[in-house]
Structure formats: C-alpha cells, structure tokens
C-alpha cells in the first residue's frame, strides 16, 4: 500500500481528529521551557521553532514526580490506597528518532528487567508519532548511535518533511490501524517518496558530530581503576543533575514518603547518580568523590547497559552537551577513554 501524506497546514485538523481518541501531546513552550505538553487544540507553531525539546518525552511515561500510592495508619496497620487507574491513551506527536530510540531503551529496564506497572500502563497504550529532523543541532550525534534524524524504527508512525506536506510512514500495526481510521489524508506520489528519500539523506548529512564507539565497552572495563583519568575527566563537573535528569535514557528515581499525622503519600521522583546523596548509606558512601560518580554515569551508559541489554544507553540527542553549565562533553570523554593497552593497572 502506498504511503499517505498530510499538508503542513492540515496538522491542526489531524491533531484535532486524534484528540477525539487520545490525549494528544505535542512540543510546547507554554510552561516556559520546551517540553511535550498536552496539545491545546490549536497551536501548531512548534512546526516553526521545534528542533527538540529540553525536557525529553520520557517525562510523559516517567514523570519528574508521581504519587505511587496513599496510605492511612489505622488501628490494624496501614491501609493502602492505590492511585486511580490511568485510563488515558496518549498520542505523542513530534517525537524525534533519538528520543523514540531512548524510549525503546527505557522499555528494557521497565519491562524486561522488572515490570513497572506505573510506567507500562502509560507506555503500552501510547502511540508515538515521529517527526523527522530537518535541522539537527550542533550537539547532535545520533548517526553515531545507531539511529538517524529520520529513523522510523521506534515509532508507530513517522512523518518526513517534504516541503508543503509530511509523508507518513506507517511503521507498526498500531500505526497502520490509526491511519486507516484517519480521514483527510492524501495519497503520496512517487515524486513525494523521492522527495522523502532526498530529505532523509540531507538530514543525515547535517549531523556533523561523530563518535566512534568501537570497543568502548572494553576500553571502559580496562579503565575502570584509572583514577587519574577519571579525576581529570570529572574536574570541571559541578555534580548537578542536568545531564542525567534531562537525559532521555536515564531512569533513576528516588522514593519518598510524606506523612502528616496519620496519612501519607509515597512519591517517586527523578534522581541522579551525579548527586553525592544518591549512594549514601548509613555507614558509608561508595561514591563520595565526584570522579566515581562521573565514572558511574559514563559506564552505566556505555558499559553496563551494553553488558545487560547489548545496547549503548545513549542515543546522541546531545541534550547533555547543550545544557551542561560547564560544557562537559560526553563525546570528548568517550573518545579520550584510554585504549586497553594504555590503561594503568
């Protein structure tokens, strides 16, 4: 079956249609920072400014904070009140391929390693509509990380900019089903498909930052005890949480109870291995020094995740480079990890 296309000026109508069935999320700056937010029913100005959001779409599935349950202390112990069942079916419009890949990477932790009902209830019912990049950032390096500005692998539908229209690629069964029920789409021509092919090539070539990850797992393994290297690498890091909290593949969270009198709430909220408190235990903190925490961050993404799931937990979205207060650059760090033979014993 031939692909469909949709006019750029018809996007509001398309989202309106989908809003009947889904809670539609789209890029927005309404909150004061670029993030995926519930679509307001009219604004599609993001088509002009949107390159990527500051807050990654993971925030929809693993929110910065959420209530896990409430509890009351009674005579017979605690009464636990689970949160109301999340019945929203979400459609995320405009997901970038790097962030879509990141969602697939997060699924490995929240589904394969351990089933997390909170995450999965939101994730499983959601549809990801990808939007191919036409203008990647200077900090982007997706083409080195197994994806590309127009990669359709991890979305249900993929939109490719072909001028006045977006070509719609139907990727999953879920995506196909949605398109079958959507009205007002046009059929794409051979010419449109040629334009899409061209657009993909152009976008691919615009990603100029490259990272060679060949053998990185082994290099990191061999350099684990190279204190001098890690100290140097960590020197300018200020141990804030920007690069982890806003990383689309970082998922660490903290759990806190808040109790007032006999009633309380258990919260889950984003946490970062960059924080000294992250590993603090009653007797000691195995990562008291900054270099140990920086090492953990790097190794988790480029060594431990590949060991567990056979994939690097970095998609080259470049947020950590763009947003870092001190310009700590993961690509420079990975490139500087000593080769096995040079590593100090």
């Amino acid at each position: 079956m031939a692909d469909k296309k949709v006019g750029k000026k018809d996007i509001a109508g398309l989202l309106e249609q989908w809003s009947q069935q889904f809670a539609v999320f789209a890029p927005s700056k309404e909150s004061g920072v670029a993030a995926m937010a519930e679509w307001d029913g009219k604004d599609i100005s993001f088509l002009d400014w949107y390159r990527n959001t500051v807050v990654p779409p993971k925030a929809i599935f693993l929110p910065p904070m959420e209530e896990l349950f409430r509890f009351q202390k009674g005579k017979e112990g605690y009464n636990i009140e689970p949160p109301p069942k999340d019945k929203h079916k979400r459609l995320i419009f405009g997901v970038r391929p790097c962030d879509a890949r990141a969602m697939a990477i997060l699924d490995m932790t929240f589904e394969q390693a351990l089933e997390d009902p909170y995450y999965l209830s939101r994730r499983k019912s959601a549809i990801l509509v990808g939007l191919g990049c036409t203008n990647p950032c200077e900090s982007c390096f997706c083409t080195s990380m197994g994806t590309s500005p127009t990669d359709q692998t991890n979305v249900d539908l993929m939109l490719i900019d072909i001028g006045d229209d977006f070509l719609i690629e139907e990727v999953t069964a879920k995506g196909k089903e949605l398109i079958a029920k959507t009205s007002g789409l046009k059929g794409a021509t051979k010419e449109d498909e040629a334009k899409a092919k061209q657009a993909k090539e152009t976008a691919y070539n615009k990603v100029t930052r490259k990272l060679d990850t060949e053998g990185i797992k082994d290099r990191l393994l061999a350099s684990f005890d190279d204190e001098e290297f890690w100290e140097k690498t960590a020197a300018k890091c200020i141990s804030c949480g920007i690069c982890t909290l806003l990383c689309p593949t970082c998922y660490c969270f903290d759990i806190n109870d808040e109790m007032v009198k006999q009633e309380g709430t258990r919260f889950r909220s984003w946490d970062s291995c960059g924080f000294p408190n992250y590993t603090k235990m009653p007797m000691e903190n195995p990562r008291q020094e900054k270099w140990r925490r920086v090492r953990q961050k790097v190794c988790h993404k480029y060594e431990f995740y590949p060991m567990t799931f056979n994939v690097i937990a970095c998609t080259g979205c470049g947020r950590c480079i763009r947003l870092c207060p001190v310009n700590w650059d993961i690509t420079q760090v990975i490139e500087s990890v000593p080769a096995r033979t040079e590593a100090k014993k």
Binding site: G241, S272, P325
Partner: peptide, 16 residues
C-alpha cells in the same frame, strides 16, 4: 508558582 512548577531539582543553581 508557575516558574517553580517546572523546576526539576537538578540543583544546578546551587552547584554553580
């Protein structure tokens, strides 16, 4: 209230 609604507690303000 609006401004602090989007704080993610990265503590960059404190650490910088």
């Amino acid at each position: 209230q609006n401004e602090f609604s989007r704080c993610i507690r990265c503590y960059a303000c404190r650490n910088a």
